[in-house]
C-alpha cells in the first residue's frame, strides 16, 4: 500500500523523468500500435492466424458495430454496469462507515480493525462457491463479490489515512478551539482524503476484476455472458469485443477518479513541478 507521501514522491519522480525524455507527439505514439494492428490484419488475411484462435481486426470492428446496432452490446454493458455500480456503492459505503468507526474511536478500532485485517488475507475469489450456495446464481452473488472486492482496499486505505493524519495539525485544531465534529470535518477527513482516493482507485480496479470473475462463473446476461456465449460458438470476434469493452470501462472509471483527485487535491498540486 502506498502512502500519500510516497505517492507524491513517485509522481514527482515521474514528472521529472517525463520531462527529461523529449515528448513524443500524439501522432508519433500512434505509429507502433497501428503497425501492430496492420501486422495482425495481414496475418489473419493470409490465413497465418486462424479465426478460431483470434478474429481479424476488421472483422472485430464489424462485429462491434453489429452488436451495437442490434442492441446486444449496449444491453450487456447496461447489465454489467449495474452490477458494478450496485456492488461498488454497497462496498464503498460499508468500507467508509467501518473505516470512520475504526479510525475515530478506540472502541471501534478494537471491534472492527482486527477482523478486517484478518479477512483481508482471504482470497476472496475463492468465496464464489460459498456465495453461490448462499445467494444462488442470480444477481446477488455477483454484486456481493464486487462489494467485497471494493470494500477491502477502500477500508484499509481510509483507515490508514485517518490514522496517519499529522498529530501536529490535530493539536493546532485543538488550540483553535475546534470541537470534535469540526476537528473531524476540517482536519481529519481532509487529511485522510489523499490516502482514501488511493484506496478508491484500487477498489475500482478490483471492482471490474471481481465482476469479470463473477460473470465468468455464471451469468445469463451482461458482458461476461456475451463472452461465454461466444466461446461456445467459437466467436473470437465477440470475445475480443467484450474484452475491449471491459478495458474501456476500466479506463473510463480510472479517468473519473483522476479527475476527482485533481479537483479534491488541488492544494497538493502546488508540490508538483508543472
Amino acid at each position: 500500500m502506498s502512502s500519500p507521501a510516497l505517492d507524491l514522491g513517485a509522481a514527482r519522480q515521474a514528472a521529472r523523468t517525463r520531462a527529461r525524455v523529449p515528448r513524443a507527439t500524439g501522432l508519433q505514439r500512434l505509429i507502433s500500435p497501428i503497425v501492430l494492428l496492420l501486422l495482425w490484419q495481414a496475418a489473419s488475411s493470409s490465413g497465418l492466424l486462424p479465426e478460431r484462435l483470434i478474429a481479424a481486426p476488421v472483422k472485430i470492428a464489424g462485429t462491434a458495430v453489429d452488436l451495437t446496432a442490434d442492441g446486444t452490446l449496449p444491453n450487456a454493458i447496461g447489465v454489467s454496469l449495474q452490477r458494478v455500480v450496485e456492488g461498488f456503492v454497497i462496498g464503498a459505503v460499508a468500507a467508509v462507515v467501518l473505516a470512520l468507526a475504526a479510525g475515530l474511536s478506540r472502541v471501534g478500532e478494537n471491534a472492527i480493525d482486527p477482523p478486517m485485517q484478518m479477512l483481508r488475507a482471504l482470497p476472496f475469489y475463492g468465496l464464489i462457491p460459498l456465495f453461490i450456495l448462499w445467494f444462488g446464481i442470480g444477481e446477488t452473488p455477483k454484486v456481493a463479490l464486487v462489494a467485497l472486492g471494493v470494500a477491502f482496499p477502500l477500508y484499509l486505505n481510509t483507515y490508514a489515512g485517518i490514522r496517519g493524519v499529522d498529530g501536529g495539525l490535530i493539536e493546532a485544531g485543538r488550540t483553535l478551539r475546534l470541537g470534535r465534529t469540526a476537528l473531524i470535518r476540517h482536519v481529519i477527513l481532509p487529511g485522510a482524503l489523499p490516502q482514501t482516493l488511493v484506496g478508491l482507485r484500487q477498489s475500482l480496479g478490483v471492482a471490474w476484476l471481481a465482476l469479470i470473475v463473477a460473470e465468468q462463473v455464471n451469468a445469463d446476461a451482461g458482458l461476461g455472458y456475451m463472452i461465454n456465449d461466444a466461446r461456445e460458438f467459437m466467436r473470437t470476434d465477440v470475445i475480443v469485443v467484450g474484452l475491449v469493452v471491459y478495458s474501456a470501462l476500466g479506463l473510463i472509471t480510472d479517468a473519473v477518479v483522476r479527475l476527482i483527485e485533481r479537483r479534491a487535491l488541488a492544494w497538493r498540486r502546488a508540490f508538483q513541478p508543472a
Binding site: 495539525l169 481532509p190 487529511g191 492544494w267
Partner: peptide, 9 residues
C-alpha cells in the same frame, strides 16, 4: 508553533 501547522487543504 515552531512549524506553522497550517492546514494544507
Amino acid at each position: 508553533f515552531q512549524e506553522p501547522r497550517l492546514l494544507p487543504w
